[in-house]
Design a protein around this nucleic acid. Structure first.
Length: 693
RNA sequence: GGACUCGUAGCUCAGUUGGCUAGAGCGUUGCAUUGACAUUGCAAAGGUCACAGGUUCAAGUCCUGUCGGGUCCACCA
């Protein structure tokens, strides 16, 4: 053995040894209890970041249960990450002076597919270098035909059960990129903008002044609203105003949504181009009049503004209002703009037909599962967080206007104007007998396929595997995607299988940079975790993520943490080295010693404590315990006390030390798999594995 | 604005249902060491536990408020 532990000398070899000996491949073994985790699939196209490094919790659970004799499955996979990947690909195209609009749908899809395939190996290699005990023989990809097939089945079932509907709702649409974004994908930007005060002539005399940040949308106004309690406007409610330029007569309505103190207390209602106004219009049964097209130009107003771009129209409207003496004032106002995270332009709320999932029935079932404890949440404090998320869930828009993803299997019959859902293009319309279909251009929201991940991966692996390992034991992920992912997995998973997709949820914290900020690409503060792995070894890196950090709390990246764990690894290494050296010169005498007894006693206490922590998902405490015991009790105390006995050739002392040490290696193994395996093999033979004990 | 969360040694963090002279890692200081390890050992210094009230025999731990980080959500024409 070397004087110090050198990770790079062993890690690759050891991982290959594990794979070659199929130590990670799960099979159905009815004599054993199953323990399964499906890895949250990283983006196939990107390198790992620190969030992925937190999956070390999963490896800890997997290896711990493997050592306890469970049949374990940790199933890896990759996500096609629709929007994210198409975004990266488009940047790539731009460098070559091209854009997505230069290609047909099929060609673009094929190009992105190949682009992803080129990069896919990266994250897989990185997961291996972290030592993760993943069963690579069962790896899945969200774009695998078998997975897509299951996603289609689920959609079809939802459609038949009446849980999918099509509705014209407002979407955040980027008129530059030609894509709509979900609320989760927009970038908020605070800005100071103008607030225009516009006079609307009231039919029968007088006027009412509204304040607006979007004068050009007045062409699509359907009402003016005031607060019912507002005395200033009491007499005007029910009257009509004549909309300048278009001449439409629209009602003055009352809605408590209006803030009397803001602006003039009178608001124009433009349901086709404002989310709040859309809600108001639904409440009051008002029509939707779209005056901005998907090309970002004013349309169908039959005014001089038709064909103008939004900004130009805004100026023109302002100019015309001045001429008509209808512009009372222009003030400054701070507001939050929703912008496109690709091009930074302001997103346009536009009405578009989309597929929606009616979530209420799914939410009800999901809540029952959590309430009844069929799904347990660890740490417990996240339970109410999850319940609240479920309570607040609104119908889920699953249509995305991108090509990189699973295309929605919905077909529109041009003669009956009905939608059909089926895996293949229907041969003929059941209503009219014709075959004039058009497939929906949209793809599924990536989360729609991700929501099916636990059962889709297992079902596509084989019925026996699915029956044995589903519901999975634990879903481990970051608390920041409880809403986007975890809650949806519960809803869709239960809907499709009538079982909870996982029995436990374990949530880890976020990794933050030195300044306490969350690491994210948009903030540009992402560090490559792999550099630390190379520098200090995977074991030190892994342990550093857990040591002294309470489960679910955020972790601040600090190299000192890793140094501490690197030192610990070396300590463990040298204890092994010391035992081995004494074994070579071991005598035969047997002599009892009070320190031997004390050591055994203390160890059994340690072991008992360790098991408690591990079962309670208190991994940090378990690691801390082994750290404390091995270093400060075993090495600093007992080893020193028994040194003389070893010199005297007392085999009892050596055996006791070796046994306790070996057991501690197993306890440490889930946290530091490489070094513990190397030492184990040095002790017991290079064909053996600590995982088989 | 709402919900949640954090604010403990120079730095990064633990402190289980309120009960110890408040702990760990890293750093700092002093001493030690040619046989496991300087990625070491021994010893030491360092905290009015964000602030202000309150409950209690007892509060870092519970309650209220303030200030300051953070996450998610909502957002006002």
């Amino acid at each position: 053995m070397d004087k110090t532990f050198q990770p790079s000398k062993y890690e690759k070899h050891i991982y290959e040894f594990w794979e070659k000996n199929k130590l990670f491949s799960a099979k159905v073994d009815k004599k054993k209890k199953p323990f399964s985790i499906v890895l949250p699939p990283p983006n196939a196209n990107a390198a790992l970041h620190w969030g992925h490094a937190m999956y070390v919790y999963e490896d800890v659970m997997i290896r711990y249960h493997k050592l306890k004799g469970y049949e374990v499955l940790w199933l890896p996979g990759a996500d096609h990450a629709g929007i994210e990947t198409q975004f990266v690909f488009e940047k790539h195209l731009k460098k070559e002076g091209k854009s997505r609009f230069d290609f047909e749908r099929e060609a673009l899809f094929k190009m992105i597919w190949e682009f992803v395939e080129e990069n896919r190996g990266t994250m897989e290699k990185q997961l291996k270098s972290l030592g993760f005990a993943l069963d690579w023989t069962k790896e899945k990809y969200t774009m695998d035909p078998e997975i897509v097939d299951i996603v289609y089945d689920t959609f079809e079932k939802l459609f038949k059960d009446g849980l999918v509907y099509r509705a014209e709702r407002l979407v955040n649409y980027c008129v530059v990129d030609g894509t709509s974004f979900s609320d989760l994908e927009v970038v908020d930007l605070e800005a100071e903008k103008s607030l225009w005060y516009i006079k609307y002539p009231v039919v029968g005399g007088g006027h009412i002044t509204v304040a607006t940040t979007r004068p050009e949308t007045m062409l699509g106004d359907v009402a003016v609203m005031v607060n019912p309690k507002d005395r200033r406007y009491k007499d005007l409610i029910g009257k009509k105003v004549e909309l300048p330029f278009v001449g439409r007569k629209i009602p003055i309505i009352a809605d408590s949504y209006v803030d009397q103190k803001f602006g003039t207390g009178a608001v124009k209602v433009t349901p086709a181009h404002d989310f709040n106004d859309y809600d108001v219009a639904r409440r009051h049964d008002l029509p939707l009049i779209q005056v901005i097209g998907f090309d970002g130009k004013i349309q169908s107003t039959k005014t001089q503004f038709d064909g103008m771009r939004i900004n130009a129209a805004r100026l023109a409207v302002e100019e015309e209002l001045k001429k008509l003496n209808l512009l009372e004032d222009v003030k400054k106002h701070k507001l939050v703009l929703k912008t496109c995270y690709k091009c930074g332009k302001t997103l346009e709320p536009l009405p578009k037909d989309q597929w929606y999932i009616k979530v209420q029935p799914l939410v009800d079932e999901a809540k029952k599962l959590v309430a009844k404890g069929k799904i347990k949440v660890h740490p417990a404090r996240f339970k109410k967080h999850l319940v609240r998320i479920l309570d607040e869930f609104i119908d889920w828009n699953i249509s995305r206007q991108i090509v990189w993803g699973i295309r929605i299997p919905a077909y529109y019959c041009r003669s009956t104007k009905k939608w059909f859902v089926s895996k293949k293009t229907p041969e003929q319309c059941g209503l009219c007998g014709k075959d004039d279909f058009m497939q929906d251009e949209d793809t599924f929201d990536t989360w729609f396929s991700s929501a099916q991940w636990p059962f889709a991966t297992l079902q596509s692996t084989g019925k026996d595997i699915y029956d044995f390992f589903y519901p999975t034991t634990v879903m481990e992920t970051g608390y920041d995607i409880l809403r986007a992912w975890v809650s949806r997995m519960i809803m869709i998973g239960y809907y499709a299988t009538k079982k909870e997709p996982f029995q436990n949820i374990f949530l880890h914290g976020l990794v933050r940079d030195k300044h306490g900020q969350k690491m994210s690409k948009s903030k540009g503060n992402v560090l490559d975790p792999m550099e630390s792995v190379e520098k200090f070894g995977a074991d030190a890196f892994r342990a550093a993520l857990l040591f002294g950090v309470k489960e679910g709390n955020d972790v601040t990246f600090a190299e000192e943490r890793i140094i501490g764990m690197r030192n610990f690894a070396n300590k463990v290494w040298n204890i092994g080295r010391f035992i081995l050296m004494n074994e070579e010169t071991a005598g035969k005498s047997k002599k009892s010693d009070k320190n031997i007894e004390a050591l055994k006693k203390e160890f059994s206490k340690e072991k008992e404590q360790y098991e408690k922590h591990m079962e309670k998902y208190e991994f940090s405490k378990a690691l801390n315990l082994v750290h404390e015991f091995l270093w400060h009790r075993f090495a600093d105390h007992y080893l020193e006390m028994l040194k003389d006995e070893l010199k005297n050739g007392n085999i009892e002392a050596l055996t006791a030390l070796k046994d306790v040490y070996s057991d501690n290696l197993k306890m440490l193994h889930p946290f530091m798999p490489f070094i513990t395996e190397v030492i184990f093999q040095t002790f017991y033979g290079s064909d053996k594995s600590i995982l088989n004990q």
